[in-house]
Design a protein around this nucleic acid. Structure first.
Lengths: 349, 349
DNA sequence: ATCGCCGATGTAAGCGCTTACATAGATCGC
DNA sequence: GCGATCTATGTAAGCGCTTACATCGGCGAT
């Protein structure tokens, strides 16, 4: 094997490997893309030469020639939420298995940022896109569709959505959780939730709660509704505020577990007994939730599964399949220790 | 403006835009890369044509021609740890500002996986790399160095490391925390820590603890040392195991906050009073730590800062600078509620 | 033996973009 | 008013790879 490096400083190119292995660049390329088309002896020679000079096909070159980038993009609000981090981790793993690279971008709940990120990814030649939520500027979806690339919306599953989606019905989920509290006997229920503006998932959640209450002739009083950033701290201050209202709710539904954790911790810090004095529910079942005392009643969502399914769907599209619409995932109610029947004073009448 | 699309199905190319704007492709390229070199009138024409046909420079093509990919890679153990997620988020943001795209890969604490990931990224033409930790196979660093691309190791800052690093001295940090406990009067100290094998950061932490104890003529007894996955659950079971030994430690140092949270929760569940019966310390200051009751005594590390610095360092390298070695970050001890003087029986003598 | 066929390899034309170099007006000084 | 000097634009040569097509042997069938 005569693999003297050709131009010392420069990284090797396919032609260098070809020269070293005494074959053409076509054969080198075939060895890496269609090995079965190359005689074993030659294949070994090429592999040896490549390894000796540390060569690997240069992605930009092959992307250009092949007209495929082998890159897909994930557009999420933030990695600071364990839920999205899990989804991204799962997608990354699923794609890596197929030799596909994941491009990540966090739009921080800013719709303009999301549009910008998507366009940047399109310029990068992503072959597919996964996007959290469907409440985005129309031009976001328009620019994806203009490129005719497959995409999937995650965490939403609104019946009648025009997008392929991997998620669950947020409205239904919160209907379920509200119903749970209602069935336990609660009638005055507070809600601590993320900003609904520009967030379809959250809006649907609130909607689900209202619908469930309405079915029993109840509603969420304005003073019992707190909307703000999903953080433990906002959960804390909200529960404090809600408990200072009249009438005092016997239960609080939180838009996610971070809020619920805050609510739980603050309620306990205030000397309340949970769930006796106040029931609290969360959503997502983040890692800490089951650990608290009492452990949080919440709904479990399999975020890794969402990531995996989104990846599988996109992968199928890239194989040229036209996968059927996926059935929604169904979050499961996890009854733990923070929701129980209210400890009501004896009812009059 | 006569921008009839040339080949209907196909995405537009620079030449299409050039035709529409009645200029050459060189000018189109300049408009997007060196706008100041193009007369304003023409610039507008090109921009208008590009917008009309939804054209953006194709990254693979320009990467090839420019011999720059504008991609950098981040190699981390997992996104499931809030610490790394934060670092990645910060890097992504810093790079996005400069038009650089972040490629992500999670090696799940598997060294072979890390080597593989790095090589895949190199093939993708990353221009720089950030890698968590320095305990990696030699070929990992060898292949990066062979490409002569800048890289930085994060979360480690071993004096004398051959790599550029953005991190802190793990040994020193744990020396500090152990010293804190020692100064409080603890003499029997347990340790719950992540696997040290193949993890330089963790090994250094344990080392720091041992060194601090040794300075007082103390040591960690084997039955007081628990090594395992960093999870809340492992923290729980470890504290239970350690409390069943003899002598019972009066304090437990945990390798990170997840372990410490588990230890704290379990100790309380066992009916112990923390810190009276047992002091517990963590490391990282994750979001939940300050929220617990009592709030966790730990060391704060600014993970966003690490991400930002790593990004800035790499960016500087890409600008051709040869940035000076960065001083280590210094984690700060956060004295909260889980570490106090031991409640010892009156000492004999 | 000869022909045709097939499988293994090589040849060369791009993929879409950037940029060194060439060119052609415009501008300026004298 | 003329050449020297700029500046704005165009021309065309790649960047590193893939792949359709051409080629070349070798083999089985006749």
């Amino acid at each position: 094997m005569s693999e003297r490096e050709p131009k010392p400083g420069r990284p090797p190119r396919a032609v260098d490997v070809a020269a070293a292995a005494e074959v053409s660049t076509a054969t080198v390329s075939r060895v890496f893309n269609n090995p079965e088309k190359v005689a074993p002896a030659i294949r070994e020679r090429v592999l040896a030469a490549a390894k000796a000079m540390g060569w690997m096909p240069h992605a930009a070159g092959s992307a250009l020639a092949r007209r495929r980038s082998s890159i897909v993009g994930a557009v999420i609000p933030t990695l600071d939420n364990e839920v999205f981090a899990a989804q991204v981790g799962a997608m990354q793993a699923a794609f890596a298995e197929r030799g596909i690279t994941l491009l990540l971008s966090c739009f921080n709940y800013n719709q303009d940022q999301a549009v910008h990120d998507v366009q940047a990814m399109l310029a990068r030649g992503v072959e597919a896109l996964a996007i959290v939520g469907e409440a985005h500027r129309p031009e976001l979806f328009a620019s994806i569709q203009a490129r005719h690339i497959p995409y999937v919306v995650t965490y939403s599953h609104r019946p009648g959505s025009p997008h392929a989606c991997v998620g669950f019905d947020n409205r239904q989920a919160f209907h379920t959780i509200a119903r749970h509290l209602l069935d336990l006997g609660h009638e005055t229920i507070g809600v601590i939730i993320q900003p609904t503006a520009g967030n379809d998932r959250v809006a649907a959640r609130l909607d689900g709660v209202r619908a469930a209450l309405a079915e029993r002739g109840l509603g969420v009083r304005p003073q019992h509704l707190r909307e703000g950033e999903w953080s433990i701290d906002f959960g804390r201050q909200s529960v404090r505020a809600i408990l200072a209202t009249d009438p005092v709710p016997t239960a609080v539904i939180c838009g996610n577990d971070y809020l619920a954790v805050g609510a739980l911790l603050e309620a306990r810090a205030m000397g309340l007994s949970v769930p006796r004095d106040l029931s609290i529910t969360g959503f997502d079942d983040i890692a800490i939730s089951r650990q608290l005392d009492p452990p949080l009643t919440t709904m479990h969502v399999d975020n890794h599964e969402i990531g995996r399914r989104a990846a599988d769907y996109l992968l199928a599209c890239l194989e040229g399949e036209r996968p059927a619409a996926m059935p929604p995932l169904v979050p499961t109610l996890i009854r733990r220790g923070t929701a129980a029947a209210p400890d009501l004073p004896a009812r009059p009448a």
